[in-house]
Every structure is written in structure tokens, then in C-alpha cells.
Design a protein around this nucleic acid. Structure first.
Length: 430
RNA sequence: GGCCCCGUCGUCUAGCCCGGUCCAGGACGCUGCCCUUUCACGGCGGAAACACGGGUUCAAAUCCCGUCGGGGCUACCA
């Protein structure tokens, strides 16, 4: 069977991590089987759909590197003719009908603050009770009795199809082989099965992915914090994000692997059944790992610091978890502000620190500020107390309680700036 | 409420299908020590889980039943 899958986001909000993860799994499955991966924008809800959300979703998918087939974007709003034709057939054959709302129903709708219409086009459902079942690729058989399935609404009118109907028609028309989507759609599936039946067509295979959960184990949503992929772009590398999302509902033998490697190993049947909590700590750990593998050019681009000297890169990547953390390294490109007291190592006094720094200036002048000479200074003048020399020197260069080492910083800022900063420190001590 | 899905360390999970090799393994996080001028990296340790109750069996995290718990859905949204 030719594999053809799709990601079908609705442009009623920015790209949600759940949607991104679903996109990834679909992409993985398509890659694994040499199939196609389609992007379909489900914008039948005219009131809530916004072009800027569509743009955001597309940008986010590009950022993650989840490219879809032919770069073609299918929009439901541009396929109205197709739904209309199918709807007409259903109406003509009596499989669908115009369902009048009762006064009670209208009242209930009005209670929700919407103005009710008089009728809707619905599926005419069989009267007898029977089990509607499907074989989920992840969960096995899922079965629901038809009496528990409510009215299946198809369209508001011939020009405005509703979700369940549009999805079925599109999946059919596009020849989708596997519908891989979130678990929150399980209860829609029996309704859609009824529509396939009315249309006289065989349904595709279904696979329902476990949900991504917040710390309280409910479906990840706004109240848990950032849910939009956009909000992660300033801190995380797309490779880390993809690697992380790949583990939300699946286990690979290795911890670190890229999308192509995941695709090789991916099997639908191995997807987990229960929801996974989105653990930002693990994402940070992964991100740190990926950051360290970046070459200077790639890092500078990702960090938005095009003018950073290459020598500064390893020093930063070894310490960063989030991209926005680069601010902590401002001492590499601007002279730091700090309190003189910070220059004092443990019980050392200003005189001792000043003496250490003066010796450092001498070394810096001679272009001899290196470990061997520094250690010699420590041994010769400071009773082997390395901190008495290294600490004030480091603070002179970084202005921080915590930072990279002085011998790492000096080459980055250059000899002249190094000397100037040490002299500034000595002045602070007098 | 009804329907559906799920239930191994705090979190992601291996093991469960094909019962013994599991006084349950790995990773993140937490934590102790080492390295060390600080931070980070790195190395070596530690604490930490089979939801509960029955049953089947010589033997159950693994099979069966029940209970409890959590979640999803219940639109003229998707």
C-alpha cells in the first residue's frame, strides 16, 4: 500500500507543540515508507481562521524541517466545490437531510452566546444499535455502540462544511492511507466511519497518538505556559525540538538522534498509548547537547551574534542551555561593571589582589599571560594559593562571580582589552 | 453524568504480547564525592517506581477479574 499521510492544522492559533509532534510522527511514517506527507489547512471555520496563523504554522513547520510534499498547501476554503458535490449526492440519495432544530436546542445554543440557525445538514443515521469499530494501529480495536454516537452534523449549509465531513471528504479525495492524529480525535472516528459508510467508501487506517500533557497531566494548554512552537524558537535549536518531540510518545534506543535516524527506526505499532508530560528540563538538556555540537558559524547564526569571535563559541556552548542565555556572556563584547569587593578571593585583602593583578599586567604586557607563567606567579608570590591570582584576574575580565576562566576570556577579548580591564581592576582596588 | 482511552522512579521510559534471568534497567531532574580560581564540562556513586485488592500458578510488573485513579470527548470548533 502506498503510504500517504497528512498534517491538518486549523489556522485558529499559532503552531501548537501537539500539532508539531503530530506533524513529526506523520513525517516520520511517510519517510520510513517512502510515502507522501501532505499539508492541509483546515480553515472551514471562517470566524476563527486567520491568515497570520496560517503563516505562523507554515513558518514553524519549515523551522522544524518538516517539509511536505511538493511544497503545496491545500486549503479547505479552496475546496468548497468538492464538499458541495459530495453533500449534494448524500442529500439526493437521502443519506443526509436537513435537520430542524427544536426550540430547546436553539435555546441551548443561544445560552452559549451564539445565534442559532433553524437547521443543519446532518447524516441520517441507521436506527438499529450496532457496534462501530475500527482497528487502531496504536491501540488495537476501539468499539463504540451506535446509540452513543450523537447526531453527525455535516454542514451548516451547502457552502460551509463542518469538520467531520470535510475531513472525510478530503482524506478520501486525497487518497490518505493513514490518518495519524491526536488521541482527542478518537471519539470523532466513529462518526467519521459513518460518513465513509454513507459515501460508500472504505476508510483509511487510523492511528491515535497519545496526548502531550502539562505538569498536572491534563492536555497541554495555554495555562501551562508556552504551547506555541514560536515561543521556543528564541531558546531552542530545531534539532533539539525535533529530537525531544520524537520522544513524546515513543522510545528509541539512543537518546540523541535526528529526524532521519528516527524515521529509519519508526514503527506505528510502537507508539505509546498513554500521554507524556512535556518536560522542559529534558528539552534543555537536549538543547545543551546540540548546542555543543554546533560549529562557530552555525552557533553565531543561531544565537544572532554574527560578530562574535570564533574563539568565544566553545566557551559559550559548553555553558548554555537556552539560546537566550547568551546575555550572560556580555562580558565577551563589552567591558563589565562590577563592585571592587568582588575582586577579593576568600580572605584576601585589596593589597594582595592588587599585587596579583599588577603581576598579571606585567605578563599581559609581555604577551605571556598563560597558565605556566600564572602558575609560577602563584607558586612564587602567593604560597601556591591559585585563587589569589586566578580569581581576581578572572573577575577583572568578566566582572562576574561565575564565568569562564581568565585564560579562556583573554584570547576572545584580545591583549589590549585584557590589559585595560586588569588596569581598571587595579584602580578599583586603590 | 454518558461514552472512549490510559495507569512502572518527580518526569520520559525498558521490561508486559511469549510468567522465572527484575529484591525492576536506562535517561532527565535531584543529590554525594572527585576534578577545579568561580561557573560549566567531565568522571564515579546515591535516593527514587511495578496504583490497590482478589484470582490463576511452584513462580506475576508480566495472565484473568474487580476497584480506584487520571485523561479525552461529549458544538451550528477543529
Amino acid at each position: 500500500m502506498t503510504v500517504k499521510v497528512r498534517i491538518a492544522p486549523s489556522p485558529t492559533g499559532a503552531l501548537h507543540v501537539g500539532t508539531a509532534r503530530t506533524a513529526l510522527f506523520n513525517w516520520l511514517y511517510a519517510r520510513k515508507h517512502g510515502g507522501q506527507f501532505i499539508l492541509r489547512i483546515e480553515d472551514t471555520d471562517l470566524e476563527r481562521s486567520k491568515p497570520e496563523y496560517e503563516t505562523d504554522i507554515i513558518d514553524g513547520l519549515h523551522w522544524l524541517g518538516l517539509e511536505w510534499d511538493n511544497h503545496e498547501i491545500h486549503r479547505q476554503s479552496e475546496r468548497l466545490d468538492i464538499y458541495r458535490a459530495h453533500l449534494k449526492r448524500l442529500l439526493d440519495s437521502g443519506k443526509a437531510y436537513e435537520r430542524k432544530y427544536t426550540d430547546e436546542e436553539k435555546e441551548a445554543i443561544a445560552m452559549q452566546g451564539r445565534t442559532p440557525r433553524d437547521s443543519i445538514i446532518a447524516l441520517r443515521q441507521p436506527l438499529e444499535d450496532r457496534d462501530i469499530a475500527f482497528d487502531d494501529e496504536i491501540r488495537g480495536t476501539v468499539s463504540v455502540n451506535s446509540k452513543h454516537i450523537g447526531a453527525v452534523s455535516l454542514a451548516k449549509d451547502s457552502d460551509t462544511p463542518l469538520y467531520n465531513f470535510a475531513v472525510v471528504v478530503d482524506d478520501l479525495e486525497m487518497g490518505i492511507s493513514h490518518v495519524i492524529r491526536g488521541e482527542d480525535h478518537i471519539s470523532n472516528t466513529p462518526k467519521q466511519l459513518l460518513i465513509y459508510e454513507a459515501l460508500g467508501q472504505a476508510p483509511p487506517k487510523f492511528a491515535h497518538l497519545p496526548l502531550i500533557l502539562g505538569p498536572d497531566r491534563s492536555k497541554l494548554s495555554k495555562r501551562h505556559g508556552a504551547t506555541s512552537i514560536n515561543e521556543y524558537r528564541k531558546d531552542f535549536l530545531p534539532q533539539a525540538m525535533v529530537n525531544f518531540m520524537g520522544f513524546l510518545g515513543y522510545t528509541y534506543d539512543e537518546e540523541i538522534l535526528d529526524a532521519a535516524a528516527m524515521a529509519e527506526r519508526f514503527e506505528l505499532g510502537k507508539v505509546h498509548k498513554s500521554g507524556a508530560v512535556f518536560d522542559i528540563k529534558k528539552l534543555e538538556w537536549l538543547n545543551a547537547r546540540y548546542l555543543r555540537t554546533l560549529d562557530p558559524k552555525a552557533f553565531k547564526e543561531a544565537a544572532g551574534l554574527p560578530n562574535l569571535p570564533d574563539a568565544a563559541v566553545p566557551l559559550m556552548t559548553e555553558r548554555l542551555e537556552r539560546l537566550s542565555g547568551v546575555a550572560e556572556f556580555a562580558y565577551l563584547w563589552e567591558r563589565p561593571e562590577y563592585d571592587a569587593a568582588l575582586l577579593l578571593w576568600k580572605e584576601d585583602d585589596a593589597a594582595r589582589a592588587a599585587k596579583a593583578l599588577s603581576l598579571c599586567v606585567l605578563l599581559a604586557d609581555g604577551g605571556a599571560l598563560n597558565q605556566a607563567n600564572l602558575d609560577q606567579t602563584v607558586a612564587g608570590h602567593f604560597d601556591g594559593q591559585k585563587g589569589s591570582v586566578y580569581w581576581p584576574l578572572r573577575v577583572a575580565l568578566s566582572g562576574r562571580r561565575n564565568s569562564a576562566g581568565p585564560l579562556e576570556i583573554a584570547p576572545v577579548i584580545g591583549p589590549a582589552e585584557t590589559k585595560a580591564r586588569i588596569e581598571t581592576a587595579i584602580r578599583k582596588l586603590s
